[in-house]
Design a protein around this nucleic acid. Structure first.
Length: 426
RNA sequence: GUGGGCGUAGCUCAGACUGGUUAGAGCACCUGGCUGUGGCCCAGGGGGUCGCGGGUUCAAAUCCCGUCGCUCACCCCA
């Protein structure tokens, strides 16, 4: 009986992890540059948090949450997204009272019980940014700019930004009504899914792939979306601010986010280097969520980016072992198995002085030890043999140059430790 | 939840259509040539319930059925 990682989950090994760490470093560096502070929330939350925020009728809540009952009969879920939890924490720690406005970012795993495919995992990872407590359009521009800067700094070169405004709640109701009125005469012709979408969430009919549905939707040229004067002004300001800092975008009237909390500005960043799941980032304003979760009536905006998708778009299928010429560290090789004790005390002396040091404990041939030193990309091999033992010295070979010399043991340890210190000051 | 493709060595894959001696290759790994020296070369070696279960047959990696897994797509989304 052998075990394997659950469907839609995966292990990350050293080579791949280097890329993840680079993304995490970049995200933290840029987030702080823009004044956002890291927040870590639990992976499990009260199920109601998401049904209330993301929406009872949303796909995520209806069929994609990992849900279970704990011993006290509480409904628990593995978080399917980050925004609701951030707002929950914002309120739980009274950030609305102590600082009013909070700029937060997070990084971590999310869970959705979907059928896996390219760019879609059951446990996937996101980094995200949330600015909670303001309705300023400048903040929309800041968040979108930060998002693009992060993606670019991570190496994404073909990001395309899609921008739209869903309007306020009143606008959405009006738009929905207009759309329903337009579709009503053709209701019987719509596909089965759209029949139910008509009542549940009409906007979803707009991105139906069914040819008949498409034809009906597009038969009227005028957009079903209406924006009130305030929302129109807000959106115009966002677009102006983005243009001022040189951010290019495509405006699209027909994409609407499938999460109920979105209002006004919504955006998505896609990459052409991805398959069917081409959204690397999505986000938008959620001006009523804080209040709906029991807080004050303040606006907020944020986004979440999929790390797996980002890495896929940046590196494609390139293997990650990145065998560069960089060599570092010392491999201690012993000429005979009975010298293992001397070798072990030498690697420990080196490690305690901050030097990377490796050795083989199997008592293998020098040839095998050298091969391993080379595979591990060590810079030097320090040989301990009979001759060295007699004179309390080591023979040190530079693997890149092939040169070799014998020096006193204590002097060697000192030299190696100084070398590390020098490298740190550089 | 629905469809397509694929499961043979650690990895990438031949072999399958036209069942037939001990199931192969390359890479990786180990050992030796070079008894105190890496990369290159040469020689040798270890490693496989052919995903699993059943059926057909004298005989199944190969044909049939089922099942599990992976993968891509739909849906939806990061």
């Amino acid at each position: 009986m052998t075990f394997q990682a659950l469907r839609g989950t995966s292990d990350l090994l050293a080579g791949e992890l280097a890329r993840w760490e680079a993304v995490e470093r970049t995200v933290r560096r840029l987030a702080r540059r823009y004044g956002y502070q890291e927040l870590r929330t639990p992976v499990i939350e009260d199920a109601a948090l998401f049904s209330r925020s993301v929406g009872e009728t949303s796909n995520i809540v209806q069929k994609e949450m990992f849900r279970f009952e704990d011993r006290g009969g509480r409904e628990i879920v593995l978080r399917p997204e980050g925004t609701a939890a951030v707002v929950r924490a914002y309120l739980e720690h009274h950030l609305h009272k102590t600082q009013g406005f909070a700029k937060l970012f997070y990084l971590g795993p999310m869970f959705r019980a979907e059928r896996p495919q390219a760019g879609r995992m059951r446990q996937f990872h996101q980094f995200g940014v949330e600015a909670v407590g303001s309705s300023s359009p400048w903040l929309d521009a800041e968040v979108i700019t930060l998002c693009l800067e992060m993606l670019k700094a991570c190496g994404l070169t073909d990001a395309s930004l899609l921008l739209a405004s869903m309007g306020c709640r009143a606008d959405q109701a009006k738009s929905a009504e207009r759309l329903r009125k337009r579709l009503a005469p053709h209701r019987a012709e719509l596909c089965k899914d759209c029949q139910s979408r008509f009542d549940k969430n009409v906007f979803r009919v707009l991105d139906c792939k069914n040819p008949t549905c498409r034809e009906i939707v597009w038969s009227e040229k005028r957009s079903p979306f209406v924006l009130c004067a305030e929302c129109e002004a807000h959106f115009a300001q966002v677009k102006r601010a983005l243009a001022d800092v040189g951010i290019a975008f495509n405006e699209s009237a027909v994409f609407a986010r499938g999460l109920d909390y979105y209002t006004r500005t919504v955006f998505e960043v896609r990459s052409s280097r991805l398959g069917a799941q081409d959204a690397v980032t999505a986000g938008g304003r959620y001006d009523h969520l804080v209040k709906e979760l029991g807080g004050p009536d303040v606006g907020a905006i944020g986004f979440a980016a999929g790390i797996e998708r980002l890495l896929m778009a940046v590196h494609g299928g390139t293997p990650s072992d990145a065998a560069d010429d960089h060599r570092a560290g010392i491999y201690v090789a012993v000429a005979r198995p009975d010298l293992l004790a001397g070798g072990f005390s030498l690697v420990q002396r080196l490690r305690r002085r901050g030097v990377t040091a490796l050795m083989d404990y199997e008592g293998r041939s020098l040839k095998a030890q050298f091969r391993e030193a080379d595979d591990a990309r060590c810079q030097w091999v320090a040989i301990l043999g009979e001759q060295e033992l007699k004179t309390q010295s080591v023979t040190v070979k530079d693997l890149a140059q092939g040169s070799q010399r014998t020096i006193a043991l204590d002097a060697f340890v000192e030299e190696a430790a100084q070398g590390v210190k020098a490298a740190c000051h550089r």
